[in-house]
Design a protein around this nucleic acid. Sequence first.
DNA 1: GAGCACTGC
Length: 820
Amino acid sequence: MPERVRIVFDDADDVPVAKQVPETEEIQGSKPVKRKDQPTDHQKQKRKKRKLEGSTDTRSQEFTSSNETQPEPVSRDTNEKDAVNGVANGTSDHLKNKNHKTKKQAPQGTKQNFTSLREKAKALYETRKNLPIFPHGDEIRRNLRTNDVMLLVGETGSGKSTQIPQFLVNEQWCRPTKATVAQDDGSEKEMTVGGCIAITQPRRVAAISLARRVAEEMGTPLGSSSPASKVGYSVRFDTSTSPSTRIKFLTEGMLLQEMLHDPSLTKYSAIVVDEVHERGVNVDLVLGFLRNLVSGKKEGRGGVPLKVVVMSATADMESLMDFFKEGLQAQGDTNTTNGNTCQQDSSQPNVEGKISVCHIKGRQFPVKTIYAPAPVHDFVDAALKVIFQIHYKEPMPGDILVFLTGQEMVEALEHLVNEYATGMDPALPKVQVLPLFAALPQVAQQRVFLPAPPRTRKIILATNIAETSVTVSGVRFVVDCGKAKIKQFRTRLGLDSLLVKPISKSAAIQRKGRAGREAPGQCYRLYTEKDYLALDETNTPEILRCDLSQALLNMKARGVDDVMGFPFLTRPPRESLEKALLQLLSIDALEESGKISSIGLHIAKLPLTPTLGRVLLAASEHGEGCLLDVIDIISCLSVENIFLNTTSEEKKEEAEKARRDLYRREGDHLTMLATVQAYAAENTDRKAWAERHMVSHRAMQSVMDVRKQLTTQCRQAKLLPSAGESRNASNNSATREPSPVLILQSFLRGFSTNTARLVPDGSYRTVVGNQTVAIHPSSVLFGKKVEAIMYNEFVFTNRSYARGVSAVQMDWVGDALTGA
DNA sequence: GAGCACTGC
């Protein structure tokens, strides 16, 4: 077997080396720590030249090398956070001992507790001082004293997420200020404005772990653990703050939610928007609202300025600069009606001076890039060759991380690598293949983090989950296929497409950076350098790829009536905006005038898509029992798949058997209801119950969280009687029979356009648009023929699929479409 | 006969 692999490589050796020296990507500076043995750039150039003239380095004959040495601006710094945590763990043992000693004298004393917190913070200060951003503290403070807006490029490992809030928290402008604030009704009110700093994060875990770290560095307890805590966080289902909180980490969605109640963000003196380069829809909305705030008159803040710091890991700051400049200009020259914005910066000195830009180098080991000499068509085959090429030639240690497009490819390659490895020379180190994708059970995902057995190289086969969400240590080799599956909403068809597309340059750089976390590394790109240079610079912002109805409802709820005039960092096509407006109109979230309706306002407050929110309100009209049932179903729909994947044929049969008592012939919605109710009724061991029924316990825990949140909100909105009021016995879900007709009719109020009818040839055609759609194989209705179906999602992968499907009657669909 | 990745008072 190994022979075969070798032969493949020998073939490749005949490929002539067509090496071009790249003009780009050779940026000086930012040397990683502890690298005395590294050659200088001059030496590297020399070596590169030698290689071109025909070196003995066999590696370069298979893959041309661009010899990138500089740490590129690697986006997304989960790394940074991990690195920081790693150091923290290193010191904490030592501190724990200290702690232990002092505890003997005053075991329970709060005072003692604070002393140890301070000691720990003191020790951490030494680490903080070494962060690349640390020397920039004064400069950053100085800039923000005069400017309200600051753009900061901080590469991976620069320490920006943890240090910026600490740099600013003791500034004069960050103190709470008494101000006279204009109220909505025109009256004025004396109130305190400012005092807090908010830092937004795209992910929950990041928000929580950063808060924990910053609390440690500041020597303060975390969040709600003490009323004196200065650092807290707020994410969905988990808010931990205190009356003394001055620094708060929150998810972008949480900040939007806060803005719904306090549009002027009166609690805050500064908002730090971190990781903007990820460009989720929420961050685009946050930036639009913040631009309006900083360039407005700030009546809602009694004139107290709000400082905005926008942080990104990629250097693409020009568009952000223009974005904020435009807002401040509009404020500055209200008299000028000149349509052309000034090209020359110097002609707008007032505006220019209000925005500062700061660039902080990161800390990353160099990663050498090796390109495929010719375009690759079979990624599985190409990756297999490269994996063994690395394994044969490169010394241990050094794990390999392979980026592939999806589960299918991961499993195919896993199979092949294992097959080759069985015939490998026993003298060679062993290999351990570890698949990694989101649908993999948690336990299997965790295996990636365990150290490999002795003399074993880990080979991690991952989807783009490893690009942002998960950091694996020990990786020195990255193999990148250059593609990813990307979900795109197609307005015209009203469906989501999940297609394999080339990644962006910044994603390629991000993937490559995963090899240089702990030591110099190598990145094998399974595409040519020419193809790399042709990639888009950045990922397509989500706002161009998704259904905009939720974003628009969000804006309408904040009083933005002219959504076409909203300051979008990237403006979605007019067609998408119009489609979303029509969609909102069709569910009565907007009035004919385009203003938000009372129904719309209600829906905007729910943590649901507008359609699901509409369903919830429709269900409330059918009584308490129906609403409770619909909440159960909606909770499932807003969570990942609750049923575990069935990989093998026998497992599939096993699952069918285990779930038989949960399946409902009416379809997926009532099946979900039966599952939630059975799970909730299980009072002894829910985990065991889930395992028995091949239901994901993790997903069900999330379902229960959402269910609780929605129930609470419905009680507050008086859609349900308050918790204290005794429930009508007939409404107890354990004893009451659900009404499938009422439930499905409630769903049709939101999903009337997501319906299809059976046509004589046995296929389904959408009622609106007459497109062919197939029931997704994961549905309980898969292979069944009913008069008509209603579905939650319309997805195009290899063909058009309806997911989340229930049987409905055509006359219900007719009623729902005509609004009867 | 099939599942890129996140997120929400």
